[in-house]
């Protein structure tokens, strides 16, 4: 029976990734599913049901954040996985890589105040009907840390209207607390199909009260439950 199968996670690793271990441990500790590190030279992701693109400074962030990583050998397989409807989550530098690779629209600019912002942030769950957010309540306020110097999400007016109309804005910073100047207070978006999400905040750093917040845990339970539902298996309580 397909439902007996475990969900397999990959965490991509680029030279300069530094949140890969956090992502790996978060999958292990929140949902206990098998997870592998996949080095950027791999060209096959067919064994995985979900792929995490972690934070850090891939290729030293030279030229632009994510600009060089977008051409790593593994990116062809990642694009294929996105087309196949697999779940892809890019966090921080991972979000920057996904925009550079055009798997998500827009770009991440230098923070408006030029400061590297590293602190907890209040996020509003704008769309709780994605595979990544289904275990949250609509409009729920959650506490997830940020740590970035270039998280100022930008897209042109036409793209913003599309994002709004298609419910592609997944997370917003709480009104009045936008840390980086992003348009429409955007903290995270998804693609049109909803299977690719990019976000600047770090849910993998918020999986236990001892870390300051456990609000990120439900992103992982959401992904597992969405996958199980799609695979026809029983959905577990978060």
């Amino acid at each position: 029976m397909k439902g007996d199968r475990v969900m397999k996670f990959a965490v991509l690793v680029f030279p300069g990734s530094n949140c890969d271990i956090d992502c790996y441990k978060a999958v292990e500790s929140t949902i206990g599913q098998p997870v592998d590190y996949v080095w950027q030279t791999s060209t096959d992701l067919s064994a995985y049901d979900a792929i995490l693109v972690p934070g850090g400074f891939s290729y030293g962030d030279y030229l632009r954040c994510g600009a060089i990583a977008q051409f790593a050998p593994v990116m062809g397989a990642l694009k294929q996985a996105a087309e196949d409807g697999k779940y892809i989550l890019g966090i921080c530098n991972g979000f920057q890589i996904l925009t550079e690779a055009r798997l998500l629209p827009g770009a991440l600019l230098r923070n408006k105040a030029l400061k590297f912002r590293c602190h907890s942030a209040k996020l509003r769950v704008v769309n709780n009907e994605t595979p990544f957010t289904r275990d949250y309540a609509e409009n729920e306020l959650i506490d997830i840390p940020i740590a970035h110097g270039e998280g100022n999400y930008y897209c042109d007016e036409a793209t913003l209207k599309e994002l709004q109309a298609n419910r592609q804005i997944v997370f917003r910073y709480e009104a009045g607390n936008n840390p980086n100047g992003s348009v429409d207070d955007i903290a995270g978006i998804c693609n049109r199909a909803g299977n690719v999400v990019g976000m600047m905040p770090h849910p993998e750093r918020a999986v236990h009260e001892l870390l300051g917040s456990a609000d990120g845990k439900r992103m992982f339970t959401s992904i597992l439950n969405a996958w199980r539902e799609r695979s026809g298996a029983a959905v577990i309580g978060g």
Binding site: A67, F71, P105, G106, A107
Partner: peptide, 8 residues
């Protein structure tokens, strides 16, 4: 392809 991101 690489040197500029024409979105921005």
């Amino acid at each position: 392809k690489l040197l500029a991101n024409t979105v921005i």
